[in-house]
């Protein structure tokens, strides 16, 4: 918990202003404003279809927005491919369905982008990969193919693969939603550890326990809007809007 809050003078890691996005005629993101400081941990929750995944996917341009501005680490997002790749190099992402490359071993999964994007020599890339696989406690599976691992193991590999690129920001898109209950903890443990090391994190999840222990801020989204954002104690103890209270009662109710 070293760099819990960034100094005010520092420029924000992510700055989203009046972001709007449509799928056809459907208005998925409506006037989103969000500023994330360096080292801040943000949990985003909300009912399905509320646009939370779409929003974080806009941050590394997996989705294109039509209006508004996104500035990541001081770089304004444009349609320019070079610019987008520059931003993606600083932003790691973990997906609901892991999206490991099934034709490559765990080690090769972790080395691919290091070798081709960062142009590191293979040996150095493998060394870094092994370090991160060690950190997510899966180094002994390095030579296996993703298809031979359990869901929890695959997700930890996916986290390691992202970390190998030394990102400044990590986006998590429902990282535990596709996991069997007994594997959720092993992935959350890795994420908690990462948070404690000062990584800037945006995490779409329904794991409210994780939100309570780790998040600096919890954001509630509904119908493409940010309804409420507050520190977890405030968010869970004293939710302001009726919609938030209803949502919380539904997911914490049993």
């Amino acid at each position: 918990m070293t760099s819990n809050t960034a100094s005010a003078a520092e420029q924000p890691m992510i700055e989203i202003t009046r972001l709007n996005k449509w799928y056809g005629d459907f208005h998925v993101l409506r006037d989103i404003d969000l500023t994330v400081a360096k080292g801040e941990r943000i949990v985003i929750c909300g009912p399905s279809g509320s646009g939370k995944s779409t929003m974080i996917r806009c941050i590394n341009h997996l989705e294109e927005h039509q209006q508004g501005e996104i500035v990541v680490g001081g770089i304004p997002m444009t349609r320019d491919v070079k610019r987008i790749e520059q931003i993606r190099r600083r932003v790691g992402m973990v997906f609901q369905h892991f999206n490991l490359f099934p034709h490559l071993t765990v080690l090769e999964n972790c080395c691919l982008a290091q070798v081709w994007v960062q142009k590191k020599p293979r040996r150095e890339a493998e060394k870094i990969a092994m370090e991160y696989l060690e950190r997510v406690r899966i180094a002994n599976q390095a030579q296996k193919y993703p298809g031979q691992l359990s869901g929890g193991q695959q997700q930890r590999v996916a986290i390691a693969r992202s970390l190998c690129m030394h990102p400044e920001i990590m986006l998590f898109d429902e990282p535990t939603s596709a996991l069997d209950p007994e594997m959720i903890k092993e992935v959350l443990d890795v994420m908690v550890q990462l948070a404690s090391e000062g990584m800037t994190m945006l995490c779409v999840t329904h794991e409210m326990g994780f939100a309570k222990t780790v998040a600096d801020r919890v954001i509630f989204m509904d119908q493409g809007q940010i309804i409420e954002q507050n520190p977890p104690t405030e968010f869970f103890g004293n939710p302001r809007s009726a919609r938030t209270r209803e949502f919380l009662s539904q997911i914490l109710g049993h």
Partner: peptide, 27 residues
């Protein structure tokens, strides 16, 4: 090939030809 494969490669900063040649086409 699921779209997630290309997205994961893109999120790692790989360009179009790298994503296609290293991730999508081999599969």
């Amino acid at each position: 090939i699921p779209k997630g494969q290309d997205e994961a490669a893109a999120a790692l900063g790989l360009g179009y030809w790298q994503r296609t040649g290293l991730v999508v086409l081999p599969q």
